[in-house]
Design a binder for these strands. Structure first.
Lengths: 245, 245
DNA sequence: CGGATTTTAGATCGCGCAATCTAAAATTAT
DNA sequence: ATAATTTTAGATTGCGCGATCTAAAATCCG
C-alpha cells in the first residue's frame, strides 16, 4: 500500500446506485457519477475499472442491501404466510412513496440491460431468488394449513412474482393507491385457505398491522352491480380507461 | 404540393418501431433509423420533425396496430371470459417466441420514458386501456356467471394487468415456458367460477383451443408433497433460486 | 530521510451523436 | 416554359460522451 483512498468504497457505491437508479446505465455520465460520488473521474476509473464495472458492483451492493436483506429479515422473523404478505406490503409501500418515479432498481436494470453479456442470465437468477422465497414460504404455509393448497406452491410463487413486478411497473407510471393495493390484495387472496376469500379475521393481529395496507376492505354487492352495468349498457364502446384515481 | 414523398409514411414508421422496439429511444441513433427506414436523415427530419417526434408517432402507430387491435379483435368476437383468456394466451405466446428478447414495446417505453413530458400521463392511460378491457370483460362474465364473483371486477382486472406486465418483464430475462405459463394459468384461475378451481371441462371447446397454452394440466397431490418437502427439510437455507427450466 | 507505490485531479483526446446547412432534383400551378 | 414549392442527400457543426494522459500529492517501507 501507498497513498490511501480518500473515500469510503461503500459510500461512493451507494451514490453510484443513486445515479444508476434514477437515470439508468446509459443516461448516467461519468461526470454525473463523479459529482455525486464526490470523487474525480480518474479516481473512479482507478477504483472500479470503468463505468460498466462500477455498474455491476452497484447492482451487487443493491441486491445485498435491499432485496436479499428484505427476504432475510422477513423470512427469519415471520411465519411463512405472514412473510409473503409483509413482503408485498413493503413493496406496495415503496411503490406508493416514490415521488421521483425511480421504480425498482433491479427491474430497471432487468429491462435496460437484459442483453448485457456481463449480467448474462444472472438477472433471471436475481428474480428467481424472489420467486424461490415465495415458493419456500408458500410450501411451508400449505404444509401448516395457513395457505390454500388449491394450486401448487410453484405456481402461486410464479403468479406472485409476476404481480410484484407488474405492480412496480404500473406504479412507475400510475402510482394510484387503489390500483396498486387492489392488485396486491387480489393476488394475495389466492393464498387464502378459506373457501370464502373475503373473511380473513382469524389471522394474527400483527399480520393485519404489517400487511394492512394491501388488504383493504371487502368488496360489496353494490360495486358488483355497478361494474356489471358499465359493460351491459352501451356495449362495446371505445375504451375510456379508468386510471384508478 | 410540389415534389412528392418517395416513401410510404406507415412503412417507414413500422421500420422506426422496429428500431425503437429493439434498442429503445436513447440507444437508437438517427443513422440507425435512417438506414432501417431507407430514407436519409434530412428526409426523416422533414417528415417527422425530430427524433422524438418520430418516436411519439411510432408509439401511436404501435398502439393502434398491436395493442388496440388485439383488444378490438378479441372483445368483438368472443364471450367475455374467453376474450380475457385469449388475450393472455396471445401475450404468453408472444413472450415465449421472442428470440431477440425485445419484450413488449409499450412496456419498454413505459420504463425508459416514464418521465417524458410529451408522453406525460398518457402511458398510464395506455395501460389503463388494457385494464379497462379486463374490467369490462370480467364484469360481463360475472353478470352471466362465467367468471367468479368472489372479488370485484375492478380488483380482478388490476391483478390481471399486473400479471400481464410482470409476465412480459420476466419473459424478457427468463423466457421459460413452465414459468410463464404457470404464472398466467394461476392468475386466470382467479376467474374460475367453480369452488374447485381445477375442473374446467365444462367450458366451450374453442376456449380450450384458443387458450390451451396457458391452462395446462391440473396440479397433483404428489407435487404438493414434493414442494412442501423442499422447505420443511433443511429449513431456512440460503436461497438457491430455481429458474424454472 | 528517500525510493517505491498508489491515489488524486486538471486537461485533453477521439468519437458518435442529434440536428442543420446548402443546394440539387422532382413535382404542381400558371 | 417557368415560377413556386417540396423533398432529397452529402457535408458539416457543435456538443457531450467514455476514457486516458500527465504529473503532483500522499502514504509506506527501509
Amino acid at each position: 500500500m501507498a497513498r490511501p483512498r480518500e473515500f469510503d468504497d461503500t459510500a461512493v457505491l451507494d451514490a453510484a446506485i443513486d445515479c444508476f437508479w434514477a437515470e439508468g446505465f446509459a443516461a448516467t455520465s461519468i461526470r454525473d457519477l463523479s459529482e455525486r460520488m464526490g470523487i474525480s473521474g480518474p479516481s473512479l476509473y482507478n477504483a472500479f475499472g470503468d463505468k460498466h464495472g462500477l455498474f455491476i458492483q452497484s447492482i451487487e451492493r443493491y441486491l445485498d442491501q435491499t432485496m436479499r436483506e428484505r427476504i432475510r429479515r422477513l423470512e427469519g422473523a415471520m411465519a411463512p404466510a405472514a412473510a409473503v404478505r409483509a413482503f408485498f406490503a413493503e413493496v406496495v409501500k415503496r411503490a406508493l412513496s416514490d415521488p421521483e418515479r425511480r421504480g425498482c432498481f433491479l427491474l430497471n436494470v432487468a429491462l435496460e440491460r437484459s442483453n448485457d453479456p456481463a449480467l448474462g442470465g444472472s438477472i433471471a437468477g436475481y428474480l428467481g431468488e424472489i420467486e424461490a422465497f415465495f415458493r419456500r414460504s408458500i410450501a411451508a404455509g400449505q404444509a401448516d394449513g395457513s395457505i390454500a393448497s388449491h394450486q401448487s406452491a410453484a405456481d402461486l410463487a410464479r403468479m406472485l412474482l409476476g404481480v410484484i413486478l407488474g405492480l412496480r411497473v404500473i406504479a412507475r407510471v400510475n402510482p394510484s393507491r387503489p390500483l396498486i393495493e387492489g392488485m396486491a390484495r387480489t393476488a394475495l387472496a389466492a393464498l387464502d385457505p378459506a373457501a370464502s376469500a373475503r373473511r380473513r379475521a382469524k389471522e394474527p393481529v400483527w399480520v393485519m398491522a404489517t400487511a394492512s395496507a394491501v388488504i383493504g376492505g371487502a368488496w360489496s354487492r353494490r360495486a358488483a352491480r355497478r361494474d356489471a352495468g358499465r359493460i351491459t349498457s352501451g356495449a362495446r364502446r371505445r375504451p375510456s380507461p379508468s386510471n384508478d384515481g
